[in-house]
Design a binder for these strands. Sequence first.
DNA 1: CAGTATCCACATTGATACTG
DNA 2: CAGTATCAATGTGGATACTG
Lengths: 101, 101
Amino acid sequence: MEKENICPLNYTMNLIGTKWKPLILFHLLEGELRSGVLQSKILAISNKMFTQTVRELEKDGLILRKVYPVVPPKVEYKLSTKGKSLEPILRSLDDWGLNNM
Amino acid sequence: MEKENICPLNYTMNLIGTKWKPLILFHLLEGELRSGVLQSKILAISNKMFTQTVRELEKDGLILRKVYPVVPPKVEYKLSTKGKSLEPILRSLDDWGLNNM
DNA sequence: CAGTATCCACATTGATACTG
DNA sequence: CAGTATCAATGTGGATACTG
């Protein structure tokens, strides 16, 4: 998607307006989650898309990635402050869907 | 985009989560607009994408299309009741962008 | 003016197999 | 367990020309 961001609305949509991003953010509203647990909550997401999506969310400063230097690997994700500030929007999107689907 | 709609959040995103839809809906918040006027407000949208997008919004019941049987043609678009109910979400997305971009 | 029809470039997504 | 690599399929967006 081209990044023109003429208006604020598009800026926001470019950060969360994809198939999986809102869903991942939504699940993280309940708190920090281990990578595998988070992924298992998003039924039907492929391994590749999961990694790719959390990477972008991290790059955009919406989530934080914590790596534990253990074997086997352990990684946890949680919302950043910026990510948490999306909560009202995520809840609105979910509520609206509930009332209209 | 695949239509799985496992959760309400995805239902909503499938309706408004594309490049141009939120922008078109946002401009229609100010009221009914003639086709050409609406399109001119969305800088850089191609003719094809404009028609395609308003068609989908109409199909999904978010906007209403009024055709005047005159020459030259005159078409006006406005939000439906369902479309109007998206206003809080659209404003939130815009506000969040303003505060974070 | 409003919209349609092609044709094409490229971005997004996914299945599968593999690594430290 | 968490993540990477590769290849293929599909979706999305756009330039151009044309119609009633």
